[in-house]
């Protein structure tokens, strides 16, 4: 695990409970929406992050998931559609001591805001980005999104959508994001662990959270995340361990020069052929190969931290914080050629 922010090591951080992070606003998601469990996982995890409420800023774009800031008892901005990473960039650069979170949907962060996401990641700006992926436009009532599967029938694609979906993790790795992880709304413990790791990462941390929109795209991940299916369908990524899953660890992942990462029966390969998970690999290609597993979210799907590497955090070069005042203005105005008129 990478070194944590200095704020988390301060001794005088008051102890908080989940309730301290809940705002007084009524939560207005549909009953049964996966966003509820993501919110509570975050509010359960925050007391363990060692930060103060007043030093925390949550920024959302527009969408169901992007309403997050209203429900958090922290500083928050509910911005405009797609622009949350850019707004958060300004917050993070203005005050590097803050813990900045961005929460947005698949439309918010990959469609209208795809550009800002790429740039926040490649710059490695200090923020934690949760991309809440329900593979649909929830707030606008059910059009296909950039992560919807090809052929998806929605209100705006009655004959099935023609678009190929984007894989959020591949996009993040393509932008050379320094922290890339996936979790899902059915496992609070897993979400909490991933959120804490993401927050502790210096620089931009990207987390895809699989979320069920029970109104417009119900059961989108059921084949993977339902309790009964998890054993055979979730590939847990554990640092330093060969990647194995399934009943009695009967399945594993190997690297294949032609097909990238592939799932195999462990009985068919020798132990040292299994891919040993190493999130700290400098080169993103292995993490990328893992991100291509289960492109349609109906095959075994890796869950956990794909990549965590150190790179300089953007904006840590010093800008004078104490304005030197009027003398500076005078020096500036008198710089270069001047002349006197008496």
């Amino acid at each position: 695990m990478t070194t944590t922010e200095t704020t988390t090591t301060a001794v005088d951080i008051p102890t908080t409970k989940r309730a301290d992070w809940q705002s007084d606003q009524e939560v207005r998601w549909c009953p049964g929406c996966g966003d509820y469990s993501i919110l509570s996982a975050m509010q359960f995890a925050l007391p363990e992050m060692g930060i103060r409420r007043e030093d925390t800023v949550v920024v959302g774009g527009i969408g169901c998931a992007a309403r997050f800031p209203y429900y958090m008892n922290t500083y928050g901005i509910h911005g405009i559609h797609g622009r949350a990473p850019a707004i958060a960039t300004g917050v993070a650069l203005a005050n590097p001591d803050l813990s900045v979170f961005v929460v947005g949907g698949d439309g918010d962060l990959l469609s209208i805001g795809g550009n800002h996401l790429l740039h926040a990641l490649r710059r490695n700006i200090n923020m934690t980005i949760l991309l809440v992926n329900n593979r649909i436009y929830g707030l606008t009532k059910g059009q296909y999104s950039p992560t919807s599967e090809q052929g998806k029938v929605t209100k705006s694609s009655p004959r099935g959508s023609e678009d190929s979906p984007l894989l959020p993790l591949s996009i993040a790795l393509g932008a050379d994001a320094t922290f890339v992880a996936r979790t899902h709304d059915m496992d609070r413990q897993h979400m909490m662990e991933v959120f804490k790791r993401a927050h502790a990462h210096p620089g931009a941390a990207f987390v895809e959270v699989l979320q069920n929109c029970n109104v417009f795209n119900n059961h989108a991940y059921e084949s993977i995340t339902a309790k009964a299916n998890r054993e055979g369908m979730i590939i847990p990524l554990r640092q330093g361990e060969p990647i194995r899953f399934g009943p009695d660890d009967s399945l594993g992942v190997v690297l294949d020069p032609r097909h990238g990462a592939v799932v195999v029966n462990t009985a068919d390969v020798s132990e040292d052929e299994l891919l040993v998970h190493n999130e700290a690999r400098d080169h993103p290609s292995v993490a990328f190969a893992l991100s291509r597993l289960s492109p349609n979210m109906d095959e075994p799907t890796p869950m956990g931290v794909f990549r965590a590497v150190d790179r300089p955090v953007y904006g840590r070069n010093p800008v004078e914080t104490e304005p030197p005042g009027r003398q500076l203005i005078s020096d500036l105005l008198h710089s270069g050629t001047t002349w006197e008129v008496d």
Partner: peptide
């Protein structure tokens, strides 16, 4: 910034902070 939208929205974020 990466475009004028990010230019103004980052400025809004900085102003908030």
């Amino acid at each position: 910034a990466e475009d004028e939208i990010a230019a103004v929205t980052s400025a809004i974020g900085a102003s908030f902070a």
